[in-house]
């Protein structure tokens, strides 16, 4: 038996891959759940109930999926061009900080929709700026952007801490380090009454569709793909590599920054140093499970949100540590990476 390269990427394998990866991850993690003395099937049933068992659960899961769609898109567009943006966590926080900074007073004279749009654009600019730096450092000095974007995450979170304990501190929070709340008329309207689900979900879906359109129908989309597949061939074919990578960095950083803005204007209402349970890193898992496809990102984000919201409920009911959600996610990522191999290679007797 040997491994042989396929002539074309197998679409069937590509469609099956995420489901196979998730199945493998759930099977392996069943062992970990059993170690806690809990029946894995019962635990997974509890997770599903926790994520979809009631109107409230469904809205919570979808609320959790919104930032994951944005950070998933951020990773997907960057990875497609082989720009390894691992800094979505930092870009999320910059976006959140900008939204909280502008949102509490400065723009309150403007009509709400205009003010909200301006806040979001500013947050996107913040996130984009944070990624253009590492992209340029790679292009100019050959510095691996994985390391710089990772290190920037730590710097940005410390900076957020500095701001919420200093200039943006909420004096009404009893010494709790959080920013002053965003003006009420800048908050995103609810999508479902008596829930935390807000119209950010519609925005996320629209942005995913837009990214898909840009990637499949524009010259920029074609150039991105070419730059990612084979930079030398792309350059030979006249693709401006530097400009393409910078544009990708702007888009990817902007999407992660938008995630932060939507979270602050939506459910959070303010910025704190603990507001993200790893949205940036989870975005990488989302993008990989989606095989970097923008519409797949939406589905993968809902899956990851299900695991997180469901695991919290399951943990409360059974006592299995809720860190199982992170384990499921990381194993899905590794399994998906392996599964993707079979879209380009096959086993031959």
């Amino acid at each position: 038996m040997r491994v042989e390269r396929r002539e074309d990427i197998s679409l069937t394998a590509l469609l099956i891959a995420p489901f196979a990866a998730i199945a493998v991850a759930l099977a392996l993690c069943a062992g970990l759940i059993a170690m806690a003395g809990v029946n894995p099937a019962a635990a997974y049933a509890e997770m599903l109930r926790g994520a979809f068992g009631s109107r409230l659960a469904v809205t919570e899961t979808l609320t959790r999926a919104v930032p994951l769609i944005f950070t998933g898109l951020a990773a997907a567009v960057a990875f497609r061009a082989r720009l390894w943006n691992i800094g979505a966590e930092g870009q999320f926080y910059i976006g959140a900080l900008v939204a909280a900074g502008l949102g509490h007073s400065l723009l309150s004279g403007l009509p709400a929709p205009l003010a909200i749009a301006l806040v979001m654009l500013a947050s996107m600019a913040g996130g984009a700026a944070l990624l253009v730096g590492p992209a340029l450092m790679r292009l100019r000095f050959g510095v691996d952007e994985v390391v710089t974007t990772l290190l920037l995450n730590f710097i940005v979170i410390l900076f957020v801490g500095l701001m919420v304990e200093g200039p943006l501190r909420d004096p009404m929070a009893f010494g709790w380090p959080q920013s002053v709340p965003v003006a009420a008329d800048l908050r995103l309207p609810d999508l479902v009454p008596r829930s935390r689900l807000h119209i950010g979900l519609i925005l996320a879906l629209a942005v995913a569709a837009l990214v898909w359109l840009v990637q499949s129908r524009t010259v920029f989309g074609a150039e991105t793909r070419a730059a990612g597949l084979n930079p030398r061939a792309a350059a030979f074919a006249g693709v401006p590599l530097t400009a393409t990578l910078v544009k990708v960095a702007l888009l990817s950083g902007g999407l992660a920054g938008l995630a932060g803005a939507v979270e602050v204007l939506g459910p959070a209402g303010k910025v704190t140093t603990t507001m993200s349970p790893g949205f940036g890193y989870a975005g990488i898992v989302v993008a990989m499970l989606a095989a970097l496809h923008p519409m797949g990102v939406v589905a993968a984000a809902v899956f990851v949100a299900t695991v997180f919201v469901g695991a919290d409920a399951m943990s409360r009911a059974t006592g299995v540590p809720s860190f199982i959600a992170d384990v499921i996610m990381s194993v899905s990522l590794l399994a998906m990476l392996t599964a993707l191999l079979f879209t380009t290679y096959r086993l031959r007797r």
Binding site: V285, F323, I324, V327, L333
Partner: peptide
Amino acid sequence: VSGLGITLFGASLSYY
């Protein structure tokens, strides 16, 4: 991607 996966896996499994 594999390295990042190992990082997420190693850390989350340790905590678990």
